[in-house]
Write a protein that binds this DNA or RNA. Structure first.
Lengths: 230, 230
DNA sequence: TGATAAAATTGGTCATACAACGTTGTTTTC
DNA sequence: GAAAACAACGTTGTATGACCAATTTTATCA
């Protein structure tokens, strides 16, 4: 059955979205017709049109300026791709940038984890390091567990922004990572992970912020080298 | 001056969001009062309330069922809030974490900008610093231009992950920033911005990575301190 | 020519009425 | 007595008209 009911406001929101992204009738920074004209043109009441506009404004597609008009936003960001990474073509470059970004952020993270983490959270980090060692011994993939290892550190920082950012970013870049590291799952990087993960986990367990920061820096620098881009 | 106009629909949307995530007055899957009662309770017209509801529904926070009622969404997956920050209770804590995060990331950013930025990009940074000084002189809000300043630096790093992360994160946290603290209204933080922005821009223009990094560190540390005074 | 004021334009809010849909309770029917 | 059909009620959806507030444009005057 096609019993699905779709409110006019939602239909109109879709129509306007199509006019912007499909028909390209209105380009970024263009001004839409005023609400009276546009509602008449679309054959709906001004009330319904306004609700549609509110929906699109909430999605960042439209920008409302009182007394001036309603405009197509300059930055048309996709809700499903908050970082806009889908539009980046050079994936190898993206992965390099991703490691550079982590090289800045993760060593201080390790220090924060050593300083702020609870005993439980730090135990989770150590456990993850042990599991990774086991996976390497079995010759299995460590990609998932490696992400969990770094996520556990992010949690132990007790900083909500870090905790929420890293996994989200990782998910956004994961496509680029997997496609570009298909070649590079060499023994060397396995060795890198095995060595430094245990070292990082130990330093954090000992509450040694300096050691954890340095170990993490070397770990990521090593990962950057293994990519073969440097 | 606080000449900024905020539509009632937007204010009401914030109020309802607070009732859900802060006061926990309505839990997931709970039904809100009907539009007549709720609009009377909030002291606004039903039209404005409906527009607020449309905004929240577009953000995935509310689910509307015609003939039945309006409910708090069960799904924890908010398309418009990829970081799930809306669920954090303590907004002040979030802002502090946001500054701590920037304290880690932005000083190296300033260094990268000094090293990698093109002359054009660096000129954009200087221009933004000049515009901010002008805005302060005129007593106007610098929030937008301040974001542009930091975005210009992120662009000059020539690191796509940084460039795409910072504005997106800033947008996600902006609600917490604006609601919990009035950044940019106190004279002390204005002074802070005026002093350090020009210093940072100058260091970057001189290609002095060390200076830029240190100036940025002091700038953000100062911002962190100013949070306690507002 | 430039500044000032009036007018037009445009989004914001409100009040009211009715329509469409879902739920719930009642009645009818077997 | 149980199931189906019906009716009443509550809720969201849509429409209309009026007026308010901010902005831009135009007209006016010195």
């Amino acid at each position: 059955m096609c019993n699905e009911f779709i409110p006019v406001s939602q239909v109109i929101a879709g129509r306007i979205k199509d006019m912007i992204f499909l028909e390209k009738k209105y380009m970024p920074n263009d001004r839409l017709p005023n609400e009276y004209d546009l509602s008449a043109q679309l054959g709906v009441s001004r009330t319904s049109l306004r609700e549609a506009i509110k929906i699109l404004a909430a999605n960042g597609i439209l920008t409302i300026k009182r007394g001036s008009g309603t405009f197509v936003s300059a930055t048309t960001d996709n809700p499903n791709d908050p970082f806009g990474i889908a539009y980046l073509e050079d994936k190898k470059k993206l992965v390099r940038h991703w490691f550079e970004f982590r090289l800045i952020l993760e060593p201080p993270n390790a220090r924060l984890a050593a300083n702020n983490g609870t005993d439980e959270e730090i135990k989770a980090i150590s456990d993850s390091a042990v599991r990774i060692a086991q996976l390497i011994k079995e010759g299995r993939s460590i990609v998932e567990e490696d992400q969990l290892f770094h996520a556990a550190i992010a949690t132990a920082t007790h900083n909500d922004v870090i905790k929420l950012t890293m996994p989200s970013l990782e998910a956004a870049v994961s496509d680029a990572i997997t496609t570009s590291t298909k070649i590079g799952t060499s023994n060397r990087s396995q060795e890198n992970v095995l060595t430094y993960h245990t070292a990082i986990a130990d330093f954090i367990s000992l509450r040694d912020g300096d050691g954890a920061e340095i170990a993490m820096r070397y770990h990521i620098q090593r990962g950057l080298k293994d990519l073969g881009h440097c």
